[in-house]
Design a binder for these strands. Structure first.
Lengths: 133, 133
DNA sequence: CGTTTCGCTTACGTCAACGTCAATCTCATG
DNA sequence: CATGAGATTGACGTTGACGTAAGCGAAACG
């Protein structure tokens, strides 16, 4: 593939973000595009990371938290101590995410209940209205 | 129950927030505490809403989005048109939340995979180290 | 009765996550 | 070669969600 590398514009179109956002993420060390002269060229690795960044944001993680999470996905070349530490952090994060999912499930079922109620009310309103006509 | 009404301090202790936060939420019309003279007194309704507010925040909703969600839980005294509209919004939100949950589940299983790998690496490192001793 | 202790209001400060604008630079195209 | 479209680097502006400090009123305590 010749377009293993993508320009900033291609990235923006692909992920629906602005150039400013990509430069900002680079300045925060979330992305590490290569350079061709001055111009940024984003790699497959950058795309993978960006995907995770955007996902993290949808769950309300801060960019700093996301940066730490990203490091967990790149555990290859670590020292043993570092690896063990990352492992522990990862297990904590996993527990958090599972707790969140459970909470989210509860929120969903509560909202579902409200919706069912509202549906019934609307239904009865409409039938009584029809009856009144 | 005589303490159906709670002071600002009791609320802060119960929900681990600051007074500033509660006043801020009131100013944004997320909470509607009663008044005894100048002092705020938070009702059971306020506590229910605060619980939902804090939950919403954990999922990355803005306060404005949360305000709209809260209205869905108070569909009693609405006009028919309003009710139908709220019903539609609620169904959209529900779909969003379900999508989020699915995405979260995927993120969890991916992270789980990474953790399993890391666990294996750590294990093998430790056994080879032991063997070398 | 003085003085802490809460609580209230008003108002300015802060931090994250970008938006926006100006001033270059660079390269392709008429 | 001019020029116009994109990209880059500062640098300042903005918005959301509070923090924080100043000043005042009420009430509870020694």
């Amino acid at each position: 593939m010749t377009d293993d590398l993508m320009t900033i514009r291609e990235m923006c179109d692909a992920f629906d973000v602005t150039p400013r956002t990509l430069r900002f993420y680079e300045s925060k060390e979330l992305l590490f595009p290569e350079r061709e002269g001055q111009k940024r060229l984003f790699t497959r690795r950058d795309r993978g990371r960006l995907k995770l960044i955007l996902r993290g944001k949808r769950f309300g993680f801060s960019l700093e938290e996301i940066r730490q999470l990203l490091d967990l996905y790149q555990l290859g070349d670590q020292q043993h101590t570092q690896l063990v530490r990352a492992y522990e952090i990862a297990r904590e994060r996993l527990a958090e995410m599972q707790a969140r999912r459970d909470e989210l499930n509860q929120a969903i079922s509560e909202l579902q209940t409200q919706i069912d109620w509202a549906g019934k009310i609307i239904e009865s309103n409409e039938t009584t209205q029809k009856a009144a006509e």
